[in-house]
């Protein structure tokens, strides 16, 4: 499996990732690291209590990291969540809706991680 194939599989924008990271080996490095990045677990763990600061910070970080990696869909979803919890912004969604969105991100993240594992296996 090539990295382009991985991006196709997980719905990422490889060109975007190339624009930001400029080197394939960096894309390779960070796509492999995605699963370990705590920002995701931080967000998922916050799902229950919905502490606004934690959700905002985690969502904001996910938005940035995913945008750099060309994981456009994940980045957009995280961005919406970040706006919902940005200090100063009023809340628009119910807690349930928020949890649903976190769940959506989680599923997309998990399926991306699955794809990444396949990619890693194919590379070794």
């Amino acid at each position: 499996m090539t990295i382009e194939e991985l991006y196709q599989q997980i719905g990422g924008d490889y060109e975007q990732a190339q624009k930001v990271l400029r080197m394939d080996k960096l894309i390779d490095k960070y796509i492999r690291k995605l699963a370990q990045n705590e920002i995701f677990s931080n967000l998922f763990n916050a799902s229950e209590g919905l502490d606004p600061t934690t959700v905002f910070e985690a969502a904001h970080a996910i938005k940035g990291v995913c945008a750099n990696l060309g994981l456009v869909s994940l980045s957009e979803k995280a961005s919406e969540l970040a706006e919902e919890f940005r200090p100063g912004n009023g809340r628009n969604l119910s807690d349930e809706d928020v949890r649903a969105r976190i769940e959506e991100i989680k599923q997309q993240f998990n399926s991306s991680v699955e794809g990444i594992k396949e990619y890693e296996a194919s590379q070794s």
């Binding site: 400029r22 960096l26 490095k29 960070y30 690291k33 970080a61 940035g64 990291v65 750099n68």
Partner: peptide, 10 residues
């Protein structure tokens, strides 16, 4: 975020 640091670094 390390990825951001690296993205700027490169």
């Amino acid at each position: 975020q390390e990825i951001n640091r690296d993205a700027l670094g490169v």
